[in-house]
Amino acid sequence: MKRKMHFITVILLVVFISATLITGCSKTDEGAEYPEGPITMIVNYGGGGGTDISARAYAKAVEKHLDVPITVVNKEGGVGTTGIIEMLNKKPDGYTFGVATYSPVAIVPHQMDVPYVPEDFSYICGYGQYKYGIAVLDDSPFETVEDLIEAAREKDGGLSYAASGYPQPFICEKLSKLEDIELVLVPTGSGAETNTMLMGGHVPFIVAIMSDLKPFIESGEMRLLASVSGDRLEIAPDVPTLQEMGYGIEINSYLGLAAHKDVPEDRMDVLREAFEKAFDDEEFQDVMKKAQIPARFFPAEEWERICIEGYQEAEENLREMGLID
């Protein structure tokens, strides 16, 4: 009888341990399974632009690993800061996170009064690098960047241009200082709105990410005057970079994801693991390629380092340019 009771006890113990191992990996320190329901991803730019398209594709890929839906919400404005602030104002329970692109995290806080610094985030990952270009309408009289500069020099008040947020304006601010001209920013809420400003004839040129410019360049409605990234662009290999033109200017920026710093770490780990697994998803990679956004994965620690160091570098650069005190 004792042997039988001992045998039953062993079986029950094995069942208990097995159940603990199976369910323990999906439970948080608070004891509740995570995620139990839908998660919201806030995109900090408007719909239809490269940031929005890539974020939606990534969210779709991640759903396969979390087994819950991810609702994507666009909150544009404040050169990318409005959506980030919206995300930080939500309950830090892991059910809201957002696209926290490099510029609104590392650059804009030096120029606008925003209620955050890079240390206020818990980082998920970085997942892409923006490429930028200067574009005009196909029938524009401007054939080169030098043409733009001369026109700005001759026109009272200079030339206006559109861009959806930093770091794009850095290009024109640096050109303005180098050439002693005025290039006046008309800020927009998204890449799609930036394109509309040019297509509607409201500005003579724009500075935008290649994912937003690509369809218009392919259709022949726009022309690229320069790559403002470190290398020539795949879609226009004959168009030189500003570096090659002798201006010594380039900009780099990245796409990434973050949540409120108070989200429990075990829940952040669930998100980080899911996004890392989803990065190689074929559909997501295809969207990134078509959008002309080079896909690059930065683990949470590296993405955090990039943003914090970028914040420090931006302060130095902006001060040197006379844009902040």
Rank of each mutant, 00 (worst) to 15 (best):
M1E: 14
R3L: 13
H6L: 14
H6G: 05
I8Q: 05
I11C: 04
V15S: 00
I17L: 15
S18A: 15
I22S: 04
T23A: 07
T28V: 09
D29V: 12
G31T: 05
E33W: 00
G37P: 05
T40H: 03
G46R: 06
D52P: 03
D52K: 03
A55R: 00
A59Y: 00
K60T: 14
A61Y: 02
V68E: 00
P69G: 03
T71G: 01
V72M: 00
K75Q: 11
V79F: 14
T82W: 03
G83K: 01
M87N: 00
A100N: 04
T101A: 09
P104L: 08
M112V: 07
P115W: 03
P115A: 08
Y116W: 02
S122R: 13
Y123M: 01
I124M: 10
I124A: 10
G126A: 02
Y132H: 14
I134Y: 08
A135F: 14
V136S: 14
L137Y: 09
D138K: 15
S140N: 11
P141T: 08
F142G: 12
T144P: 10
K155Q: 15
D156T: 06
S164I: 08
S164N: 12
Y166E: 14
Y166D: 11
Q168D: 13
I171D: 01
C172S: 12
C172D: 08
S176M: 10
S176L: 07
E179H: 15
L185I: 07
V186G: 03
G200R: 07
F205Y: 13
I206D: 06
S211M: 08
S211C: 09
L213N: 09
P215R: 06
R223I: 13
L225C: 11
L233E: 15
A236N: 07
P240G: 09
P240W: 09
T241V: 13
Q243R: 13
M245I: 13
Y247F: 15
L255S: 05
L255N: 04
A258S: 08
D266V: 10
D266T: 10
R267M: 05
R267H: 04
M268F: 08
V270Q: 09
L271P: 02
A274W: 03
E276R: 15
E276G: 15
D281P: 14
E282N: 11
E283T: 15
Q285F: 06
D286T: 13
M288D: 07
K290R: 14
A291K: 05
P294M: 02
P299F: 07
A300W: 01
W303Q: 02
R305T: 10
C307K: 04
Y311Q: 03
E313N: 09
A314C: 05
A314D: 03
E316V: 15
E316W: 00
N317W: 01
G322Y: 00
G322C: 04
L323Y: 02
